[in-house]
C-alpha cells in the first residue's frame, strides 16, 4: 500500500455500455508506467475514471492516501492529479499564455513560467496568439506545460504522440525524460510502445476493460512477440 496511486476492481460505464471490468493497477512515487492496448480496450476510460471525469464507476481509487471515489471533480486536481487529454483540450478563445496560466496552482514544486518557456521556446514565441492557432505538436506541448505549472504530483497523459511527426515525438520524449529526473509520477497511455519503452519503467497491457499483463521495462524483449500479437502491429 506504499504506492502513490492505487486502483482496485475498477468498473466504469459510458451510459449503458460497461467499459471497464475490474481494472487493477498501482503506481509508485516517481515511477512512470505505460498502459498499452488496442483502440477501444478502455485505456482512455481508465484515465478518465481515475481523474473523476467519468463518474459512473465502482471499485476503489486511492491517491496519496485520499479516497478519490467520493471526491468532487474540482478537488481531484487539488489532491495532486493532473490530466492531459487525448484531444489536448486547448481553448480557442484563450491566448497561449492564458491557456498556460489557466489551471490553478495546487501545490508548491511546479515549474515556473520561465522554466516552462525555457523548456518549450515555441510557446514563448507564440504566447499571444489564440491557443488553437498552434500546430498539433505545439498544442500537445502546451497541454503538458500547463499541468507542469500547477505542481501536480502525478500526470495522467493520454496518447501524447498521436498524429505527430517523428521529430516532435522525440521532443516529447525529451520532456518526459526531464520530468522523470524531477521525480514526477506519470501514467502514460500509448499505442506506440517503441516510444514508451524509452521512458517507461513498467508496462500494463489492457484488453477488453482489464489489465491482462504487467512487466517491467527490462522484460520488454521477452514480451515482444506477445505484444506484437496483442497490438496487431
Amino acid at each position: 500500500m506504499s504506492a502513490l496511486l492505487n486502483v482496485a476492481g475498477l468498473n466504469a460505464w459510458y451510459g449503458e455500455s460497461h467499459i471497464l471490468h475490474g481494472v487493477d493497477l498501482h503506481v509508485n512515487e516517481g515511477e512512470m508506467i505505460c498502459i498499452l492496448g488496442r483502440n477501444g480496450m478502455g485505456k482512455t476510460t481508465t484515465l478518465r475514471s481515475i481523474m473523476g471525469i467519468l463518474r459512473k464507476r465502482t471499485g476503489t481509487i486511492t491517491f496519496a492516501g485520499s479516497d478519490m471515489m467520493t471526491m468532487p471533480l474540482h478537488k481531484t486536481a487539488r489532491a495532486g492529479l493532473g490530466f492531459v487529454p487525448e484531444e489536448r483540450g486547448i481553448f480557442a478563445s484563450l491566448s497561449v499564455q492564458e491557456n498556460l496560466m489557466l489551471p490553478p496552482v495546487v501545490a508548491k514544486g511546479g515549474m515556473s513560467v520561465d522554466e516552462i518557456y525555457a523548456l518549450f521556446p515555441n510557446l514563448h514565441e507564440r504566447r499571444n496568439s489564440p491557443g488553437t492557432k498552434l500546430s498539433g505538436g505545439e498544442q500537445q506541448m502546451l497541454a503538458m506545460a500547463r499541468i507542469l505549472r500547477t505542481g501536480a504530483r502525478c500526470l495522467l497523459l493520454d496518447e501524447p504522440t498521436e498524429g505527430l511527426a517523428p521529430v516532435i515525438i522525440q521532443n516529447i520524449g525529451t520532456v518526459l525524460g526531464e520530468l522523470k529526473k524531477r521525480g514526477m509520477t506519470v501514467v502514460l497511455v500509448e499505442q506506440n510502445f517503441r516510444f514508451a519503452s524509452k521512458v517507461a519503467d513498467r508496462f500494463y497491457l489492457m484488453d477488453h476493460g482489464q489489465m491482462v499483463a504487467e512487466f517491467p521495462v527490462g522484460d520488454l524483449p521477452a514480451n515482444m512477440d506477445m505484444l506484437n500479437r496483442e497490438l496487431g502491429v
Partner: peptide, 8 residues
C-alpha cells in the same frame, strides 16, 4: 468538464 478537472 476539463476546466473543472483543472481544479476550478
Amino acid at each position: 468538464v476539463l476546466v473543472q478537472s483543472f481544479g476550478v
